[in-house]
Design a protein around this nucleic acid. Structure first.
Lengths: 144, 144
DNA sequence: CTCGCTGTTGCGAATGATTGCAATAACAAA
DNA sequence: TTTGTTATTGCAATCATTCGCAACAGCGAG
Protein backbone atom coordinates (compact mmCIF):
# COMPACT_ATOMS: atom_id res chain seq x y z
CA UNK A 1 0.00 0.00 0.00
CA UNK A 2 2.77 2.33 1.03
CA UNK A 3 4.75 1.60 -2.13
CA UNK A 4 1.68 1.95 -4.31
CA UNK A 5 1.20 5.49 -3.02
CA UNK A 6 4.82 6.45 -3.56
CA UNK A 7 4.89 5.06 -7.08
CA UNK A 8 1.74 6.96 -7.97
CA UNK A 9 3.15 10.21 -6.70
CA UNK A 10 6.47 9.71 -8.48
CA UNK A 11 4.72 8.87 -11.74
CA UNK A 12 2.74 12.08 -11.46
CA UNK A 13 5.92 14.10 -11.16
CA UNK A 14 6.13 14.58 -7.41
CA UNK A 15 9.35 14.08 -5.48
CA UNK A 16 9.62 11.48 -2.78
CA UNK A 17 10.95 12.82 0.50
CA UNK A 18 11.50 11.24 3.91
CA UNK A 19 8.70 13.43 5.23
CA UNK A 20 6.20 12.22 2.66
CA UNK A 21 7.22 8.62 3.27
CA UNK A 22 6.66 9.00 6.99
CA UNK A 23 3.28 10.61 6.54
CA UNK A 24 2.08 8.02 4.05
CA UNK A 25 3.30 5.26 6.35
CA UNK A 26 1.42 6.71 9.29
CA UNK A 27 -1.73 7.08 7.24
CA UNK A 28 -1.74 3.63 5.73
CA UNK A 29 -0.84 1.86 8.95
CA UNK A 30 -3.73 3.44 10.79
CA UNK A 31 -7.01 1.65 10.43
CA UNK A 32 -9.36 4.50 11.35
CA UNK A 33 -9.81 8.06 10.30
CA UNK A 34 -6.94 10.10 11.69
CA UNK A 35 -6.20 13.80 12.12
CA UNK A 36 -3.21 15.75 10.86
CA UNK A 37 -2.29 16.51 14.44
CA UNK A 38 -2.32 12.81 15.34
CA UNK A 39 -0.07 11.96 12.42
CA UNK A 40 2.34 14.68 13.42
CA UNK A 41 2.37 13.69 17.08
CA UNK A 42 3.06 10.01 16.42
CA UNK A 43 5.92 10.82 14.05
CA UNK A 44 7.39 13.69 16.00
CA UNK A 45 7.98 11.38 18.93
CA UNK A 46 10.77 9.69 17.03
CA UNK A 47 12.16 12.37 14.78
CA UNK A 48 12.28 16.11 14.75
CA UNK A 49 12.72 16.15 10.97
CA UNK A 50 9.09 16.95 10.38
CA UNK A 51 6.98 20.03 10.65
CA UNK A 52 3.24 20.26 11.14
CA UNK A 53 2.92 22.48 8.06
CA UNK A 54 4.45 19.72 5.97
CA UNK A 55 1.88 17.28 7.29
CA UNK A 56 -0.95 19.55 6.22
CA UNK A 57 0.62 20.21 2.84
CA UNK A 58 1.20 16.53 2.16
CA UNK A 59 -2.35 15.66 3.15
CA UNK A 60 -3.65 18.35 0.80
CA UNK A 61 -1.57 16.83 -1.95
CA UNK A 62 -2.81 13.31 -1.32
CA UNK A 63 -6.41 14.47 -1.28
CA UNK A 64 -5.89 16.45 -4.47
CA UNK A 65 -4.47 13.35 -6.14
CA UNK A 66 -7.39 11.25 -4.98
CA UNK A 67 -5.31 8.92 -2.82
CA UNK A 68 -6.72 10.00 0.51
CA UNK A 69 -10.13 11.17 1.57
CA UNK A 70 -10.68 14.21 3.75
CA UNK A 71 -13.73 14.05 5.96
CA UNK A 72 -15.20 16.72 8.14
CA UNK A 73 -16.79 14.66 10.84
CA UNK A 74 -18.59 17.69 12.19
CA UNK A 75 -16.25 18.32 15.10
CA UNK A 76 -13.48 20.84 15.32
CA UNK A 77 -10.98 18.73 13.45
CA UNK A 78 -10.71 17.31 9.98
CA UNK A 79 -10.05 13.60 9.50
CA UNK A 80 -8.13 11.77 6.82
CA UNK A 81 -8.22 8.18 5.63
CA UNK A 82 -6.49 6.29 2.82
CA UNK A 83 -8.75 5.24 -0.01
CA UNK A 84 -8.33 1.49 0.09
CA UNK A 85 -11.58 0.67 -1.64
CA UNK A 86 -13.48 2.62 -4.24
CA UNK A 87 -15.79 5.59 -3.69
CA UNK A 88 -18.23 5.42 -0.83
CA UNK A 89 -20.18 7.78 1.38
CA UNK A 90 -19.91 8.43 5.10
CA UNK A 91 -22.83 8.32 7.48
CA UNK A 92 -21.68 10.15 10.59
CA UNK A 93 -23.69 9.77 13.77
CA UNK A 94 -24.08 13.11 15.53
CA UNK A 95 -24.69 11.30 18.77
CA UNK A 96 -21.95 8.71 19.13
CA UNK A 97 -19.57 9.78 16.36
CA UNK A 98 -19.65 6.41 14.66
CA UNK A 99 -18.90 6.47 10.94
CA UNK A 100 -20.73 4.03 8.69
CA UNK A 101 -19.39 3.52 5.20
CA UNK A 102 -22.30 3.25 2.80
CA UNK A 103 -22.15 2.05 -0.75
CA UNK A 104 -21.67 4.63 -3.49
CA UNK A 105 -24.55 3.14 -5.42
CA UNK A 106 -26.84 4.80 -2.88
CA UNK A 107 -26.31 8.21 -4.43
CA UNK A 108 -25.84 7.37 -8.08
CA UNK A 109 -29.50 8.17 -8.81
CA UNK A 110 -29.13 11.53 -7.08
CA UNK A 111 -26.12 12.39 -9.18
CA UNK A 112 -28.05 11.60 -12.32
CA UNK A 113 -31.02 13.69 -11.23
CA UNK A 114 -28.87 16.72 -10.41
CA UNK A 115 -27.27 16.53 -13.82
CA UNK A 116 -30.62 16.25 -15.58
CA UNK A 117 -32.53 18.89 -13.68
CA UNK A 118 -29.81 21.43 -12.84
CA UNK A 119 -27.10 20.61 -15.38
CA UNK A 120 -24.82 20.24 -12.38
CA UNK A 121 -22.05 17.64 -12.40
CA UNK A 122 -21.89 16.78 -8.72
CA UNK A 123 -18.85 15.08 -7.25
CA UNK A 124 -20.43 12.79 -4.70
CA UNK A 125 -17.49 10.55 -4.00
CA UNK A 126 -16.77 10.40 -0.27
CA UNK A 127 -19.38 12.88 0.84
CA UNK A 128 -20.46 12.81 4.46
CA UNK A 129 -23.98 12.90 5.78
CA UNK A 130 -24.84 13.61 9.37
CA UNK A 131 -27.64 12.01 11.27
CA UNK A 132 -28.45 9.48 13.95
CA UNK A 133 -27.42 5.84 13.75
CA UNK A 134 -29.57 2.87 14.55
CA UNK A 135 -28.27 2.37 18.08
CA UNK A 136 -28.64 6.01 19.03
CA UNK A 137 -32.11 6.23 17.54
CA UNK A 138 -33.40 3.72 20.07
CA UNK A 139 -31.34 5.20 22.89
CA UNK A 140 -32.68 8.69 22.26
CA UNK A 141 -36.27 7.52 22.35
CA UNK A 142 -35.68 6.09 25.80
CA UNK A 143 -34.04 9.30 27.02
CA UNK A 144 -36.82 11.64 25.82
CA UNK B 1 -38.29 38.98 9.02
CA UNK B 2 -36.17 40.61 11.66
CA UNK B 3 -39.07 40.63 14.14
CA UNK B 4 -39.98 37.06 13.33
CA UNK B 5 -36.51 35.97 14.35
CA UNK B 6 -36.56 37.91 17.58
CA UNK B 7 -39.96 36.63 18.57
CA UNK B 8 -38.89 33.07 17.92
CA UNK B 9 -35.80 33.44 20.07
CA UNK B 10 -37.72 35.10 22.89
CA UNK B 11 -40.39 32.40 22.84
CA UNK B 12 -37.68 29.79 23.15
CA UNK B 13 -36.32 31.45 26.27
CA UNK B 14 -33.41 33.41 24.86
CA UNK B 15 -32.79 37.04 25.77
CA UNK B 16 -32.84 39.77 23.21
CA UNK B 17 -29.78 41.98 23.27
CA UNK B 18 -28.64 44.88 21.08
CA UNK B 19 -25.86 42.64 19.76
CA UNK B 20 -28.24 39.92 18.68
CA UNK B 21 -30.53 42.46 17.05
CA UNK B 22 -27.66 43.93 15.07
CA UNK B 23 -26.46 40.54 13.91
CA UNK B 24 -29.92 39.38 12.87
CA UNK B 25 -30.47 42.67 11.03
CA UNK B 26 -27.20 42.29 9.15
CA UNK B 27 -28.03 38.71 8.24
CA UNK B 28 -31.56 39.31 7.04
CA UNK B 29 -30.72 42.45 5.09
CA UNK B 30 -28.03 40.65 3.13
CA UNK B 31 -29.24 38.80 0.10
CA UNK B 32 -26.33 36.39 -0.34
CA UNK B 33 -24.42 34.03 1.84
CA UNK B 34 -22.28 36.03 4.23
CA UNK B 35 -19.39 35.28 6.59
CA UNK B 36 -19.13 35.99 10.29
CA UNK B 37 -16.23 38.29 9.59
CA UNK B 38 -18.29 40.28 7.09
CA UNK B 39 -21.13 40.70 9.53
CA UNK B 40 -18.71 41.88 12.18
CA UNK B 41 -16.93 44.30 9.85
CA UNK B 42 -20.12 45.95 8.61
CA UNK B 43 -21.43 46.44 12.14
CA UNK B 44 -18.16 47.37 13.78
CA UNK B 45 -17.88 50.37 11.48
CA UNK B 46 -20.66 52.10 13.34
CA UNK B 47 -20.41 50.79 16.87
CA UNK B 48 -17.75 49.30 19.03
CA UNK B 49 -20.33 47.56 21.19
CA UNK B 50 -19.81 44.26 19.47
CA UNK B 51 -17.20 41.57 19.65
CA UNK B 52 -16.32 39.02 17.00
CA UNK B 53 -16.79 36.19 19.50
CA UNK B 54 -20.37 37.33 20.01
CA UNK B 55 -20.99 37.17 16.28
CA UNK B 56 -19.80 33.59 16.17
CA UNK B 57 -21.80 32.63 19.24
CA UNK B 58 -24.97 34.21 17.92
CA UNK B 59 -24.59 32.50 14.58
CA UNK B 60 -24.11 29.17 16.34
CA UNK B 61 -27.31 29.83 18.24
CA UNK B 62 -29.31 30.71 15.14
CA UNK B 63 -28.07 27.62 13.35
CA UNK B 64 -28.89 25.47 16.36
CA UNK B 65 -32.42 26.89 16.40
CA UNK B 66 -32.86 26.22 12.71
CA UNK B 67 -33.25 29.88 11.76
CA UNK B 68 -30.04 30.21 9.79
CA UNK B 69 -28.15 27.80 7.63
CA UNK B 70 -24.40 27.31 7.87
CA UNK B 71 -22.70 26.33 4.65
CA UNK B 72 -19.14 25.32 4.07
CA UNK B 73 -18.62 26.47 0.53
CA UNK B 74 -15.31 24.66 0.37
CA UNK B 75 -13.09 27.66 0.91
CA UNK B 76 -11.38 28.73 4.09
CA UNK B 77 -14.44 30.42 5.53
CA UNK B 78 -17.91 29.36 6.55
CA UNK B 79 -20.95 31.12 5.15
CA UNK B 80 -24.30 31.84 6.74
CA UNK B 81 -27.70 32.63 5.25
CA UNK B 82 -31.16 33.15 6.75
CA UNK B 83 -33.64 30.39 6.04
CA UNK B 84 -36.34 32.30 4.19
CA UNK B 85 -37.79 29.28 2.44
CA UNK B 86 -37.93 25.69 3.55
CA UNK B 87 -35.17 23.09 3.39
CA UNK B 88 -33.11 22.90 0.23
CA UNK B 89 -29.72 21.70 -0.86
CA UNK B 90 -26.74 23.64 -2.16
CA UNK B 91 -24.93 22.86 -5.37
CA UNK B 92 -21.59 24.64 -5.14
CA UNK B 93 -19.53 25.07 -8.28
CA UNK B 94 -15.86 24.36 -7.59
CA UNK B 95 -14.93 26.43 -10.60
CA UNK B 96 -16.83 29.71 -10.33
CA UNK B 97 -18.13 29.51 -6.78
CA UNK B 98 -21.76 29.89 -7.82
CA UNK B 99 -24.31 28.39 -5.45
CA UNK B 100 -27.43 26.82 -6.90
CA UNK B 101 -30.30 26.10 -4.56
CA UNK B 102 -31.86 22.79 -5.48
CA UNK B 103 -35.14 21.45 -4.27
CA UNK B 104 -35.16 19.25 -1.19
CA UNK B 105 -37.29 16.71 -3.00
CA UNK B 106 -34.14 15.75 -4.90
CA UNK B 107 -32.76 13.89 -1.92
CA UNK B 108 -35.89 12.60 -0.25
CA UNK B 109 -35.44 9.19 -1.93
CA UNK B 110 -31.86 9.02 -0.71
CA UNK B 111 -32.94 9.72 2.85
CA UNK B 112 -35.47 6.92 2.63
CA UNK B 113 -32.91 4.49 1.24
CA UNK B 114 -30.35 5.26 3.95
CA UNK B 115 -32.96 4.64 6.61
CA UNK B 116 -34.02 1.35 5.06
CA UNK B 117 -30.65 -0.10 4.27
CA UNK B 118 -28.47 1.29 7.07
CA UNK B 119 -31.04 2.23 9.71
CA UNK B 120 -29.49 5.68 9.58
CA UNK B 121 -31.68 8.76 10.05
CA UNK B 122 -29.81 11.25 7.88
CA UNK B 123 -30.34 14.96 8.28
CA UNK B 124 -30.13 16.14 4.69
CA UNK B 125 -31.58 19.60 5.10
CA UNK B 126 -29.24 22.22 3.64
CA UNK B 127 -26.42 19.90 2.71
CA UNK B 128 -23.91 21.12 0.16
CA UNK B 129 -22.63 19.20 -2.82
CA UNK B 130 -19.61 20.25 -4.80
CA UNK B 131 -19.22 19.90 -8.52
CA UNK B 132 -19.18 21.83 -11.76
CA UNK B 133 -22.08 23.97 -12.94
CA UNK B 134 -23.50 24.06 -16.43
CA UNK B 135 -21.60 27.15 -17.55
CA UNK B 136 -18.26 25.90 -16.30
CA UNK B 137 -18.80 22.46 -17.81
CA UNK B 138 -18.82 23.95 -21.29
CA UNK B 139 -16.01 26.39 -20.48
CA UNK B 140 -13.77 23.62 -19.18
CA UNK B 141 -14.24 21.55 -22.31
CA UNK B 142 -13.03 24.47 -24.38
CA UNK B 143 -9.99 25.00 -22.16
CA UNK B 144 -8.84 21.40 -22.18
C1' DC C 1 -39.44 50.61 40.01
C1' DT C 2 -36.15 47.68 42.15
C1' DC C 3 -33.96 43.45 42.75
C1' DG C 4 -31.81 39.21 41.71
C1' DC C 5 -31.09 35.26 38.98
C1' DT C 6 -28.69 33.65 35.28
C1' DG C 7 -28.01 34.11 30.39
C1' DT C 8 -24.86 36.92 27.62
C1' DT C 9 -20.92 39.69 26.54
C1' DG C 10 -16.06 41.24 26.08
C1' DC C 11 -11.57 40.18 26.50
C1' DG C 12 -7.56 37.68 25.85
C1' DA C 13 -5.59 33.38 25.22
C1' DA C 14 -5.61 29.07 22.77
C1' DT C 15 -6.94 26.15 18.99
C1' DG C 16 -6.51 23.99 14.30
C1' DA C 17 -5.07 25.21 9.92
C1' DT C 18 -2.76 28.10 6.24
C1' DT C 19 0.72 31.03 4.12
C1' DG C 20 5.06 33.70 2.54
C1' DC C 21 9.64 33.27 2.14
C1' DA C 22 14.33 31.86 2.39
C1' DA C 23 16.98 27.64 2.90
C1' DT C 24 17.26 22.95 1.49
C1' DA C 25 17.26 18.73 -1.06
C1' DA C 26 15.31 15.48 -4.89
C1' DC C 27 16.34 13.97 -9.12
C1' DA C 28 17.37 14.40 -14.10
C1' DA C 29 20.93 15.64 -17.15
C1' DA C 30 25.61 16.06 -18.18
C1' DT D 1 29.80 11.99 -9.60
C1' DT D 2 28.78 16.72 -10.01
C1' DT D 3 25.63 20.24 -11.13
C1' DG D 4 21.42 23.00 -11.88
C1' DT D 5 16.67 23.41 -11.70
C1' DT D 6 12.88 23.73 -9.05
C1' DA D 7 9.86 21.20 -5.90
C1' DT D 8 9.70 20.85 -1.03
C1' DT D 9 10.64 22.00 3.71
C1' DG D 10 10.98 24.61 8.17
C1' DC D 11 9.95 28.52 10.47
C1' DA D 12 7.34 32.13 12.10
C1' DA D 13 3.56 34.97 11.25
C1' DT D 14 -1.20 34.89 10.38
C1' DC D 15 -5.87 33.44 9.80
C1' DA D 16 -10.63 31.95 11.22
C1' DT D 17 -12.74 30.16 15.10
C1' DT D 18 -13.43 28.68 19.91
C1' DC D 19 -13.05 28.87 24.88
C1' DG D 20 -12.66 30.19 29.97
C1' DC D 21 -13.81 33.49 32.97
C1' DA D 22 -15.13 37.68 35.18
C1' DA D 23 -18.12 41.64 34.41
C1' DC D 24 -22.43 42.95 32.74
C1' DA D 25 -27.32 43.29 31.59
C1' DG D 26 -32.09 41.32 30.20
C1' DC D 27 -36.27 40.49 32.09
C1' DG D 28 -39.57 38.31 35.27
C1' DA D 29 -40.96 38.38 40.18
C1' DG D 30 -42.11 41.06 43.81
Amino acid sequence: MQDKYETKLRVRGYRMTPQREMIIAALTSSDHHITAEEIFASLHERTRALNIATVYRTLDLLVEEGLVCRTDLGGDRVYYAPLRHGPHIHLVCRHCGQVIEADYSQIAPLKKRLQEQYDFAADLKHVSFFGICETCQSTEQVEN
